[in-house]
Amino acid sequence: MEAHLKLRVIVEDDDFRRLDLPGLPETLNELHKTIREAFVIERDFHIQFMDPEFNNEFMNITTLQDIRDRGTIKLVYKPNDVNVTPSSLLSAPSTSSSPETSVSLQRSSSLSSMQSSSADSDSTIILQQSDIELRARAWPQEFPIPRFSYNVEVQLQRGNESFRETGNLLTTTPGLKSDILEKLAEEIFQYTAYPQNHQIDEVAAALIKKFPCLKEQSATGYYAWMISLKYKMANYRTKMRNIGCPEVTVNALKNKSSDECLPAKNVKKPKKAEVNFCPSHPTGETDDSLENVRRELLNDVRQRNSAPRVREKMSKTFSYRRKEVVQGNPAA
């Protein structure tokens, strides 16, 4: 473990605390547990750190290497628990509209600011998940292989038993391999629609680690699985685009200008630590209906005691504002 660490922890917007650690924890889960026990926090949360490479904007922690002595970290609570105060805090959180909230409602300036700091903006924190499932998880430190369908699990378990006894690898049929790749693609999509090469590598390595009977004759033992998984993700994105998933339809050729009408040109993907890149509208809502809600917001922020309505409407129009950020590319 590293030397003694001192961290500044933002527990709430108006609650700043100091955390002394005898050394850097071995895993992110241990860091979560330490913070939870030190400050008696019952809510589920994820941790962000102040990134000097991005003008000290807060970014989601994906590796323990992001932690620095005397650095600042921030606790961002999961949406379902936003209005609940930790048991260790006796005072209720402030509900008054801040200047940043008022400014964020101005059409052009708010959109550009949320693009650069979407993981840290108030509108991101207050999202509710009643209508659509939003991303709330960063890429895991160790990718969890999902549970496959029953018939696939039976074949893989028997393959593992045979591998341990005789060392023989499992002969995968096209149907079995397709089922495995389909389930992996579905799980990857829960984290990102456009996985990077190292993420594909991590998934393939995790698959072989759990099911060594699927190894192949290559240097890594899973090179062919990596290639197949890349193609499967491309096919899965096509499937999601056909059913109207906004995160991938934004990159469809029909949505690109004539001078950029190439599949690989100007592909719009989430930036570092950016979640809910381009979510679907809430059920029953359209661009026109959400534009009317946005206009109502401009009046609400000028009224007293309107914070609850502002939060509700900011949450409701989040997908609409993100769509304009991603598709419209508004000027700063």
Score class of each variant (00 low, 15 high):
Cys261Gln: 15
Arg311Ser: 11
Asp44Thr: 14
Ile180Gly: 01
Ser94His: 06
Ile125Cys: 09
Thr171Ala: 04
Glu187Leu: 10
Gly167Met: 07
Gln129Cys: 08
Asn235Thr: 11
Leu298Thr: 12
Glu165Leu: 10
Arg8Val: 06
Tyr150Pro: 02
Asn83Gln: 08
Leu75Asp: 00
Pro282Ser: 01
Glu291Lys: 07
Ala136Gly: 13
Ile188Ser: 00
Ala273Gln: 03
Phe16Gly: 02
Leu176Phe: 11
Phe211Lys: 02
Val301Met: 12
Ser149Leu: 12
Phe45Val: 07
Asp179Ser: 15
Phe277Ala: 03
Arg311Phe: 00
Gly159Met: 07
Arg302Phe: 05
Glu291Gln: 10
Asp287Tyr: 07
Tyr320Glu: 04
Lys272Thr: 01
Glu161Gly: 09
Gln65Glu: 14
Arg321Met: 05
Arg237Thr: 03
His46Val: 05
Ile125Asp: 08
Ile41Trp: 03
Gln217Val: 06
Arg311Asp: 05
Lys78Leu: 14
Leu229Gly: 03
Asp66Ile: 04
Met226Ser: 06
Leu176Pro: 02
Ala204Ser: 15
Glu153His: 03
Ser280Val: 11
Glu187Phe: 09
Gly167Leu: 06
Asp69Gly: 05
Val310Arg: 00
Lys209Val: 03
Pro93Ala: 09
Arg18Cys: 01
Asn83Ser: 10
Glu37Thr: 14
Gln48Val: 03
Val9Gln: 01
Leu176Trp: 10
Arg294Ser: 10
Thr173Arg: 13
Lys268Trp: 00
Pro140Ser: 12
Val40Cys: 08
His4Gln: 15
Ser98His: 12
Thr27Lys: 15
Ser102Ala: 14
Asp288Ser: 13
Gly175Cys: 07
Ser116Lys: 09
Ser88Ile: 02
Leu105Pro: 01
Phe39Tyr: 10
Leu176Lys: 12
Lys256Pro: 04
Val301Thr: 14
Gly221Tyr: 08
Ser109Arg: 02
Tyr150Asn: 09
Thr220Asn: 13
Lys254Tyr: 11
Leu298Cys: 06
Leu89Ala: 05
Thr286Met: 11
Ala38Pro: 04
Asn242Val: 04
Leu127Ser: 01
Leu89Ser: 02
Ala273Asp: 03
Lys239Trp: 06
Gln129Asp: 11
Asp131Tyr: 09
Met233Val: 13
Ile208Ala: 08
Gly71Gln: 02
Asn29Ser: 15
Ala224His: 03
Arg36Trp: 00
Ser315Lys: 00
Gln155Ser: 13
Leu156Trp: 02
Leu19His: 03
Leu134Trp: 01
Ser94Phe: 02
Val103Lys: 11
Thr172Val: 15
Leu170Asn: 05
Tyr320Arg: 07
Ile61Ala: 08
Val267His: 05
Ser121Tyr: 01
Arg295Ala: 10
Tyr223Met: 06
Phe45Gln: 02
Ile145Val: 13
Val267Asp: 08
His281Phe: 15
Gln199Lys: 13
Ile243Gln: 06
Leu297Gly: 00
Val82Asn: 13
